[in-house]
């Protein structure tokens, strides 16, 4: 199952403050251990929301409003994402709890969201092949 670990933005990240070398080292080591465990699918940092744009539909059919950032921090902004593929929710939570946090920069947090599963039922190649034959006959 895939989980998206979203690191919440803080005033510091929004202001583009350098989180410091120790933190960066910790993040690097954390990602290495994710990769070594074979669970890492993606890990990215986001630029502050001043580099973001919102497309807002105030009411259904109307033309959207396009608004550039920065946006209010209390609206739950995101500073970074880590996408992992694990076997259990517990495993995902453990990885989230191990995620390094910049020290001395006030409250911050991580939100875990499970992604919808892609249809990954095991495929039977023989059935697939025979279905292809059938479609061929039917000119589909």
């Amino acid at each position: 199952m895939r989980y998206l670990l979203m690191m919440r933005a803080t005033g510091f990240t929004e202001a583009g403050m350098n989180p410091g070398g120790t933190y960066k080292e910790a993040v690097k080591a954390y990602r290495q251990s994710l990769a070594k465990a074979g669970v890492l699918l993606a890990a990215e940092e986001l630029r502050p929301s001043s580099a973001g744009i919102r497309v807002v539909y105030l009411s259904g059919g109307d033309a959207p409003e396009v608004r550039p950032g920065p946006f209010p921090i209390e609206q739950g902004l995101i500073a970074g994402i880590t996408l992992i593929d694990v076997d259990t929710e517990e495993e995902a939570l453990n990885w989230a709890l191990r995620m390094p946090i910049p020290s001395g920069q006030g409250s911050c947090g991580i939100e875990l969201r499970r992604l919808e599963d892609r249809a990954v039922h095991p495929r039977d190649p023989r059935q697939t092949a025979m279905e292809a034959e059938l479609k061929d006959y039917l000119q589909l």
Binding site: A35, K36, A37, G38, V39, L40, L41, A42, D85
Partner: peptide, 15 residues
């Protein structure tokens, strides 16, 4: 599919 997905799938499989 993404190369990272393949790479991670292989790492996990070996583990």
């Amino acid at each position: 599919i993404a190369e990272s997905t393949v790479a991670q799938r292989i790492v996990r499989a070996k583990r």
